[in-house]
Design a binder for these strands. Sequence first.
DNA 1: CTGCTTGCAAAACTTTTGCAGACGG
DNA 2: CCGTCTGCAAAAGTTTTGCAAGCAG
Lengths: 140, 140
Amino acid sequence: MLSSREEIVETIRKSGHRATSQRIVVYEALWKAGSHPNVSEIHKYASKSDPTISLATVYKNLQLFSEIGLVREMGFRDGSMRYDPDVDFHINLVCNKCGRIEDFDCISLEEIAPNLIQKVGFEVQSHNFEVRGICSRCRS
Amino acid sequence: MLSSREEIVETIRKSGHRATSQRIVVYEALWKAGSHPNVSEIHKYASKSDPTISLATVYKNLQLFSEIGLVREMGFRDGSMRYDPDVDFHINLVCNKCGRIEDFDCISLEEIAPNLIQKVGFEVQSHNFEVRGICSRCRS
DNA sequence: CTGCTTGCAAAACTTTTGCAGACGG
DNA sequence: CCGTCTGCAAAAGTTTTGCAAGCAG
């Protein structure tokens, strides 16, 4: 996570884009909105800092963040997109009953599929590892 | 893959559902529609066998197939759902440039995350492991 | 100043739903 | 025959787009 406002501004600028107040608000809302939020949850939190921010702006900026690697897009069952600000490799345990998503740390992608580039010539940019089932809370 | 029509009929019946002609057409279209098709591609192929089949029926049956384990749903970046008839554990290499999806066999989920149930009490039902990047064809 | 960004509203899509009629078992 | 399933059309969502006005650099 980029913690200070200066760090966020710098990262956005380095990617060749403008550090507008809305961009910073959306980035901060990503973390405040809880675990793996969808767009409307992010918009809800962004609205607390900037009540006039539009949903379209949230969409446009999340798309930008995804392109510059600040967030990971997760296509979701209910037809909406969810966003994971943790871009490091991990498993998302998605509960089919309550919808809650837990993170689970596992061995690295390099250990799982050694030499992906050498073997099939694929250059890795991002990943999304979902395991669906029933979480402990719903099973008991 | 369930190869003969009788095998498909039997599998659907065993799950407690009726083996209608539309169901069989949708299942066969899943394989004919190429690798990881979306709903409209599946509908297009299903229409070749049954020109009057409706999109709603394709949706309803894909949802059923997913519930009874005949297909794996993949939430996708473009907002549409894609379907993978290969339900065994593997990595989907998705090219960000051309959109093509290759399968990559890797070690088992049990080897990646041993004792998922024992450790966090999570009961695995399905999985979706996507790695995005640039494929060999687009890199050269 | 320049042109990237925003906000608004409409458009474009994907997916779901309700219901009368069809048909599988 | 009964109850599930289909087709249609409309509804419900989500995401994208065009454009005038507003700001960042």
